[in-house]
Amino acid sequence: MYKITLKRQLTKDIKLMGILAPHVVRNAKAGNFVIVIPGETGERVPLTIYDWDKESGVVYIIFQEVGVSTVKLGMMNEGDFVYSIAGPLGRHFHIEKYGNVVVVGGGVGVPAIFPIARALRDAGNSVTSITGFRTSELSILEKEMKSVSDAVIVATNDGSSGTKGLVTDALKALYDKGGKIDLVVAVGPVVMMKAVSELTKQLGIKTIVSLNALMLDGTGMCGGCRVTIGDKVKFSCVDGPDFDGHLVDFNELTSRLSAFKAEEKISLDHCKIHLAGR
């Protein structure tokens, strides 16, 4: 059992949580993730490590309530205990001096790019962040991204804050301004990572994406997280989650993410009925 030390509501359905887990923090690095099980009968839920504190042993995650597991997690409060948290999982993001890096985050992909941007900047890169949201009310981590970036561009679909349009529009505009871009890192919904990768392929800019395949153990034992990269099948939990965006079969990933759609609905309904009955 692992104690929840902090809970903050960032938007209507996005929450930040601190969990006491020294075993995760000790060797945590940018790009790693954890697997959390909210309660004893729960699922194993992969979530990116947003931040960590070596001294207190607290790991921070930010998640969006989309289904039964994230809803259950979101109902827990400071002082409660999550049943299990394992990590750090996945390879950490490969940090070196690339030059000018643009990190692109969409929705709950933003918490994932935060530590990457910070590590890249610490390694001497110039970092421009582009964060994208549907509307200003859903915008998160603007201040935090500013603290780890040389420049931050916020894009909203409806133009309610920052520039109007998609992150790809902002990226294209940045490119058109003529600045040299040596690397793009994109984390967010699959459609976004796909669109960024297609754009950067045309522009000839190396691009790394972080894949959110469905996962179970996170240790390379089940193969449920398999993705096709170029002509090879990889396990995203141990070979990734970061991959060359120009090689990812995004259509396959999108399809595989919907493997349990019907069951997810049953599960959420079951949970709601249960709650209503209490």
């Binding site: 009968t41 729960g42 069951e263 049953i266």
Partner: peptide, 14 residues
């Protein structure tokens, strides 16, 4: 993960 007890347990199998 006891998917055979779904939805009492949260992990599905299809």
């Amino acid at each position: 993960l006891k998917a055979y007890k779904f939805p009492e347990y949260d992990t599905p199998v299809k």
